[in-house]
Design a protein around this nucleic acid. Structure first.
Ligand code: SF4
Ligand code: SF4
Lengths: 152, 152
DNA sequence: TTAGTATAGGACCAAATATGTCGGGATTTC
DNA sequence: GAAATCCCGACATATTTGGTCCTATACTAA
């Protein structure tokens, strides 16, 4: 229920880790997995997914591994979740008109779609860079940002 | 992944339905279920949960059923989800320190907790009344509302 | 050119969760 | 007392998640 999957969770951790090591050309899946205690093979697949969706660049062979495809500032948490878990919907409807057969009679799907948009907006406004910077909790650098419109 | 359970979904529909019929003293679970095609026994349990959490008032016997315990304006979507699905966490950690054994090494749980707060805030700002009023999509009556702070 | 390191990806499995059903019991009304 | 209704625990099933295994492929360096 409204919970992030661990895969997405792992993916975010890995991206953050990569963002924190811009000096290194590439980090292998195993290195990242070991750094956090994430099952290596599972993380491998996650990184493959992220690569397939253009968030990472991979390099096989010795000293190979993964590196961010773009600046950490340009990668949003939303994209990560999207790449790993597929299309983002808080309701069971919408996605291909299947999954919920009471879509016709349902009267709350429209308002919920707005809520969906709002939450997606929140996620879109968070970049990997933001995650990596969470060290200074009291700092506020972007005063104009930080507000998400919710129009029901 | 970040999806509302159908139970919560059903619960919201039912509450909205009750909010739309303030004239009637009580509506039985079966009536509501039939109105939308929701499995009756399942909805019954959901309404029981909502009752137990003080969102509804129930009345057994003939012509019995459920009625909102408070004004529709005073019941938030957040409360509904909380009552039906239990504590609201987008991550697997937090809840009783179990579920995720890499909590110590994890470096993103804190920022994610903020995201969690933000989303909870969105949900808290939506009342059953809001859902019931979704008929007039272009109307904006509360201009000062509708903004949710996101401070990472 | 070959051994070693890495990614790519399909198949599969086990655990957890979500969804839905059944059946018996308690209340209230008529 | 009978019918309608809520209450609630146990159960069964379906779906999703989390995780493993195995093989193939790509790259590097000695
Ligand atoms: S149609 Fe209504 S009930 Fe079915 S998933 Fe969408 S919102 Fe939930
Ligand atoms: S600890 Fe980190 S990884 Fe584990 S659930 Fe919380 S956020 Fe996700």
């Amino acid at each position: 229920m409204l919970k992030l999957t661990k895969k997405a969770d792992y993916g975010l951790m890995a991206l953050k880790y990569l963002a924190e090591h811009p000096d290194l050309a590439a980090l292998s899946a195993k290195e990242v997995a070991d750094a956090y205690g994430i099952p290596a093979q599972l993380l491998a697949k996650i990184l493959q997914l992220l690569t397939k969706h253009g968030l990472l660049r991979s390099h096989a062979g010795m000293n190979g591994g993964y590196a961010l495809a773009r600046d950490a500032r340009q990668i949003s948490a939303y994209e990560v979740i999207l790449a790993i878990d597929g299309p983002f919907f808080i309701t069971s409807c919408i996605k291909g008109a299947k999954s919920c057969e009471l879509t016709p009679s349902c009267t709350i799907k429209e308002p919920l779609a707005r809520v969906n948009e709002t939450i997606a907006g929140v996620l879109k406004s968070i970049s990997i860079q933001d995650l990596a910077e969470h060290e200074h909790p009291a700092k506020r650098e972007t005063d104009t940002q930080g507000l998400v419109a919710l129009t029901l």
